[in-house]
């Protein structure tokens, strides 16, 4: 690039890059643009390629749908943490429902504190009630409700990848 510029500046006095006298300049400028343009395209392609390369296509992670257990394992009014799948199964007045146990703040695993009747996060001190609503702390959102249903074999099933917008209860 710099070579091109020098050449342009060294043309006779009065001749500018756009001057008709400087016949070479248009061609040189064109090729410089083609060169830079193809570099830009190659850089964009390399960026895309890197993004694809660094995103794994197969993951060995736990499936989102988990079997939570038979409803009678959860006494009336209880909040039960299943640490393996990071969900709460709650047997409330209106029926069963499931909450994600992962704090919406920065992903720590919360714990049920029966003495406070609250769900508490150990990392930055967020607290939620048994409906997942934030009571205190820095969490930006309530704990999400997860899709829950009763399977044919009598087990409660929870889909961790589907959050509910409205509360839904599973009646047994």
């Amino acid at each position: 690039m710099s070579d091109v510029k020098t050449q342009v500046q060294e043309t006779p006095v009065g001749a500018t890059a756009k001057d008709e006298k400087c016949k070479d300049c248009g061609r040189r400028e064109f090729f410089a643009k083609v060169g830079m343009g193809s570099l830009a395209v190659a850089a964009a392609g390399a960026g895309l390629f890197s993004y694809e390369f660094f995103s794994p296509n197969v993951l060995f992670e736990a499936p989102p749908i988990v079997k939570a257990g038979k409803p009678d394992e959860f006494p009336q009014g209880s909040v039960t943490l299943d640490p393996k799948s990071a969900i709460y199964i709650i047997n409330g007045n209106k029926g069963f429902y499931a909450l994600s146990a992962i704090c919406t703040h920065l992903g720590c695993l919360t714990a049920w504190k029966p003495e406070l009747d609250l769900i508490a996060c150990p990392c930055h001190g967020s607290r939620f009630n048994r409906d997942g609503v934030k009571v205190a702390g820095p969490a930006p959102e309530p704990l999400p409700w997860l899709k829950t249903w009763l399977a044919e074999d009598g087990n409660l099933m929870v889909d961790r990848s589907t959050t509910l917008k409205e509360p839904e209860y599973v009646k047994v």
């Binding site: 993004y51 995103s55 794994p56 993951l59 060995f60 992670e61």
Partner: peptide, 12 residues
Amino acid sequence: FLMLGGNEVNAN
């Protein structure tokens, strides 16, 4: 996702 090579902190 790129940082962890997945959705959770794991072998990747």
